[in-house]
Design a protein around this nucleic acid. Structure first.
Lengths: 217, 217
DNA sequence: CTTCACCCTGCACCAAAGGCCAATTCCCGG
DNA sequence: CCGGGAATTGGCCTTTGGTGCAGGGTGAAG
């Protein structure tokens, strides 16, 4: 895979703080880059979805750190954020944490605390990123299914018999078998168990089929 | 089911604040009870796992709110916590939020903010509680499986053929079929799809079988 | 010793799933 | 108008899955 080195983005309008943090991170072996404002950060990222995390000052001229957090949350794979501020208050920190921030540190921050938070953030990013990639492959395969195949897919995952599926779709059982084989082929799975497993993971994004009982009475 | 009314536990050493909060909650239609200390709360709960949530002051004589939070986290179904304090700081709020607190409010708190937080807490409790109960039933059924049946269970969930399972267990295919039927019976599912679905949910607690491919080459 | 739960197995039978080959109809874009 | 993908259906045959019936073995508990 593209084993890209994670990048720590440091966004702070205070030059001295920013460069100090960047150097500290680099000294600890991280790839770090500084930005003077939220806008600069958003524009300057060539690699839109490269792995990494953000160290962010809350209070800055222009868009605040919280605004930036909101913007980042809309990315496909949102970068974890470590807040770092000198003028914060409790409601602000709570809001940031509720919105998924990894940590909310106050200046002056200890070297260890910052590094620990960054490590946590990078770890979280790696996790969500790999989870996301795993699902991405399945979603891509699902996209290749024809409408009819998707219906059969749903039926199979729900534990229905070919006969039942055929009845519901108003077609012959033989047809369902054909589609079913196509589904297994396209989804690259060898057993119903695997198919269900995949479906469960995708369920959030595809509208639940939930494997609800077949309920043949 | 036991549609018990959720209870809001208010823990605060300040009598006036406590009674005020309790009354406010009761006026809003909640079942609320007050406790003067963490210890009093822990001892006074007859219904160990009744639904509800906790409104908690961080700074109290004796065990602090954060200590109590830690203690609650060890319960089978931890009660969601809304912190309410007059003497908090950012690190404290961050720590509380990281530990799963629903909100961290500062005194004086607006009536609406408190009620909103309590509503959120109760909603979260109801959710985790129902999820927990759902899994509890499955776990109980899984407990009734004999060792052999569990092995077959794992095999089936992994998408293996009866023949393969038989080979691995060193028994006849017929035997596997027998166990398999028992498993379906005991787990109260009608299809492999359902079984896999259940297994996926339990996987965290049972050591993953992950439905990894059968890989018969 | 008897009872009981658990484990194992054989035979037969039916239902369901899956592979192989082939053919028809519909509809879209070139 | 035509090629081609999608959807559909058929038949045929093999492998699996699921059930019923019957029976045997072992170890722990009463």
């Amino acid at each position: 895979m593209t084993e890209r080195r994670p990048i720590v983005h440091v966004v702070d309008d205070d030059d001295s703080v920013r460069t100090a943090v960047v150097r500290l991170l680099q000294a600890a072996g991280h790839e770090a880059r500084g930005y003077g404002s939220a806008g600069e950060f958003l524009l300057g990222r060539s690699d839109r979805d490269a792995p990494g995390c953000v160290v962010l000052d809350v209070r800055m001229p222009g868009p605040s750190g919280l605004d930036l957090q909101e913007a980042l949350a809309r990315l496909e794979v949102p970068l974890p954020i470590v807040f770092l501020t000198g003028h914060g208050d409790i409601p602000m920190s709570v809001r940031a944490m509720k919105a998924g921030a990894v940590d909310f540190l106050t200046k002056p921050v200890s070297r260890d605390a910052l590094l620990a938070a960054v490590r946590t953030a990078l770890a979280r990013d790696a996790e969500t990123r790999s989870a996301h990639e795993r699902l991405h492959a399945f979603r891509a395969r699902y996209e290749t299914l024809t409408p009819r195949e998707r219906e059969v897919f749903a039926g199979v995952v729900a534990g229905k018999l070919n006969k039942q599926i055929a009845g519901e779709l108003g077609t012959a059982e033989r047809t369902v078998k054909a589609h079913r084989a196509q589904v297994m082929e396209k989804m690259q799975v060898a057993s119903v168990a695997e198919l269900v497993h995949v479906a469960n993971q995708l369920s959030g994004e595809l509208g639940g089929f939930s494997a609800g009982a077949a309920k043949r009475e």
